[in-house]
Design a protein around this nucleic acid. Structure first.
Lengths: 260, 260
DNA sequence: CGCCTTCTTGAGGGTTCTCAAAGTGGGTGG
DNA sequence: CCACCCACTTTGAGAACCCTCAAGAAGGCG
């Protein structure tokens, strides 16, 4: 059921292990932003759901679908997107393992967006009912969920200013910086080296440019020595210099550890 | 302390009345999205805070400021913005009377953004402590606050796809449609006619274009007969036709009444 | 009446798009 | 093991959209 070879690396672990690892990452992010008691933490880790594999380019959640579960990414890379009448997509958020893609769907189950597997992606489908019970029983968890949504909104707002007021080059640099910090926080790599398993066409859908222009922008950053790619691996020799180009300040991610 | 003459229309009411009206609008939006008991509704209406007037172009909250209150707009128009190193601003959200600009600041008090008065604007500064007490005492209110943040994020996500994948003309049309529906819901006008007290330069900061280009885009819409302005008033003769150009579907606003 | 903010217009240039085709590499079947 | 296919990346050329700089018109306010 695993996809092409390079996806096997992500999915090779038995799924129960991957699921536990994703829950741990999810919990780690919650506790970074909110204080939770041991009991509350155990309750989060006890969450259960069906693990589902979605092949690259397939939709995990179709636009407009009404769902009764939230998706915790346990492997791969997922993107929330909005689709235009002409079929063009804009990806509004990227989700890495440990991210609950659509925690907000608990409170608003009718999705106006879709979620796409950018590469072969495993998700844990956690029933809304379980999450709602948790939030009702433990107010601190409800509060943590709220903060998680706020962090999500903060990233969206930052991306609006990137799309509205920055060049493609600066936007690209910003994305590479953001994903570096997030990957590092999730212990999936470092800000200087991590995997970003997306095609250039998909990254173009994130940056709001065409894939042709994205390719040229990529080349410009390589010429400047700011960024190198090796297959899916991103290498950033000088993170500070890249941050300056991007005017990147990780504070908006609401990850204190990344702000150091 | 009221500003220029055209702002007086907004601010002429004694502030206690304006504050009550803003709280009613705020409550109306919450109850649209969440069910609240009579007691919970009374608790919201009993919220109190200092009313502050901010002149046009001045900051209600400066970027980076740590605050201990949330701002409920009671008159005028406010914009959340992100500022670049070169001083350029991108407005990420517009807030009309009845909107709690930064409800999320209750959970994340250090602002990474700023809030600007686009015109002379009155805000009610409601202490975080009052809101937090309310959320702790009434779980349904905490839940309603969460949903409000989700609605906020939904609007942000829609705006990302507008900035990334639409022309200035379509973006402008989308903004006019969105504000029309929101104004109608807030009973501050109708989708066919409402006041938008912002300068073209400010609207350009929302749309992510220059004021020169915004002006030309405006003219193009007028030429097409889609949109007319009369001072601050926006007139939309054919909302359906404008919606089509904008590919506007009000569902993302999470205002069921607007979706009809 | 004069100042100031805002809106409007013009001309030229840069970024990004569109359309099209060629190059690259992994996977698959013969 | 080779040939083919397919998805992805890269390149080229011309056009469209939007920006910059600059200056002129319009309207409120002292």
């Amino acid at each position: 059921m695993t996809g092409q070879s390079y996806e096997a690396a992500v999915c090779e672990a038995p799924s129960a292990v991957a699921a536990q690892s994703a829950l741990h990452k999810f919990l780690a992010r919650l506790t970074l932003r909110s204080r939770l008691s041991d009991e509350e933490q155990r309750a989060i880790l006890a969450l259960d759901g069906r693990e589902v594999f979605t092949a690259a380019h397939c939709d995990i959640v179709r636009p407009g679908q009404t769902i009764d579960f939230a998706c915790l990414v346990s492997g791969g890379l997922a993107g929330r997107f909005d689709q235009l009448a002409n079929g063009h997509r804009q990806i509004t958020a990227l989700h890495i393992p440990g991210d609950m893609c659509d925690l907000h769907s608990v409170a608003v189950p009718h999705a106006g967006w879709g979620i796409e597997a950018l590469t072969g992606t495993n998700t844990l489908r956690i029933p809304h009912s379980s999450l709602r019970q948790l939030a009702e029983r433990y107010p601190a968890i409800a509060y943590a969920f709220w903060r998680d949504t706020i962090a999500d909104a903060s990233v969206l707002a930052k991306w609006i200013s990137a799309l509205g007021r920055r060049s493609a080059k600066s936007r690209m640099a910003h994305l590479i910086c953001e994903m570096g910090i997030r990957m590092e926080q999730a212990e999936l790599g470092t800000r200087h080296c991590y995997d970003l398993p997306a095609t250039q066409a998909q990254l173009a859908d994130v940056l709001g440019v065409t894939s042709v222009h994205l390719n040229r922008t990529f080349q410009a950053l390589r010429r400047d020595g700011l960024l190198f790619t090796d297959g899916l691996a991103i290498r950033v020799p000088d993170f500070v210099r890249l941050s300056r180009l991007a005017e990147f300040d990780p504070q908006y991610l609401l990850l204190d550890s990344g702000a150091k």
